[in-house]
Design a protein around this nucleic acid. Structure first.
Ligand code: ZN
Ligand code: ZN
Ligand code: ZN
Ligand code: ZN
Lengths: 135, 135
DNA sequence: TTTTTAGTTGTTATAATATAACACTATGTA
DNA sequence: TACATAGTGTTATATTATAACAACTAAAAA
């Protein structure tokens, strides 16, 4: 009955969940997403995880593996989630997606001892953000 | 009553769990570790997680975040777990710790746009291992 | 149009991963 | 001794994620 949302062909559940993540200043966890969308009719964990899986697959969001949390992609160059880098503040847990041409070129071309190249990577930096450094 | 194990001052539980991980050719998950050490008197998840936490902290093992699994460190240069890189085969799930001076220097000196430097990082590369490429 | 196909949905139940809280034990230091 | 720090054993519980199945939707093929 409902048309898919025009932008990126997201379905209704995908759109609801993407919008929530996109508006959030920090990464959101799956069950916190669930609590926040129950009023919109999304009642079960699976409905959330299915949307998250799809959104990750198409590169609209990324999973912060060390936090089991999800953040919207704001880096037009990684619309397919295969080369991601983040900085994570160990005090306030602020997460920022890093988009550095130098870094992504370096990693995309990295070969190990066997000359093996990789199709994908995820890099997480940890430290203190500007704000937390000044405290 | 028991003296701590001389090597690295591991306690009894830490030693049992480290030995198991160290002997394993692939990363082990916490509950698979639990099943494998029950005959040695370790009965509860917490006993495993506590040992794992400590072993990670002192750099004897690393956590593969994207797999929730643990691997022994075989890289003498990262005995404190603050700069880790792994290659992960997406078919056979083989994981190898990467020790590349070039890579670690590049990442240790990486500064983002704000000039922020990081105290720690974890990098996971994904692709096909040699064996799986040939199939 | 009808049929088929792939994908998404809603639902209940359950699996897998990880931590809280508390009483106790061992060890090193003063 | 007294005290501090770290590890242990235990029960219970929290958090994260998937299995299985029936129904529905959208889009493409016939
Ligand atoms: Zn991105
Ligand atoms: Zn901060
Ligand atoms: Zn290591
Ligand atoms: Zn392989």
């Amino acid at each position: 009955m409902n048309k898919m949302h025009k932008e990126h062909n997201l379905t209704k559940n995908q759109k609801i969940i993407f919008d929530l993540i996109d508006k959030s200043p920090q990464p959101l966890k799956a069950y916190s997403i669930l609590y926040n969308v129950q009023k919109k009719g999304i009642k079960a964990p699976l409905q959330v995880y299915r949307a998250l899986d799809k959104l990750v697959e198409i590169g609209k969001i990324h999973k912060i593996e060390s936090r089991n949390a999800f953040i919207a992609c704001h880096n037009s160059s990684c619309q397919v989630a295969k080369a991601t880098a983040f900085s994570i503040c160990e005090i306030c847990e602020k997460v920022t997606e890093i988009s550095s041409t130098g870094l992504s070129k370096y990693l995309a071309n990295f070969k190990d001892k066997d000359g093996m190249k990789y199709s994908k990577y995820n890099l997480e930096f940890f430290g203190l953000c500007k704000k937390c450094t000044l405290k």
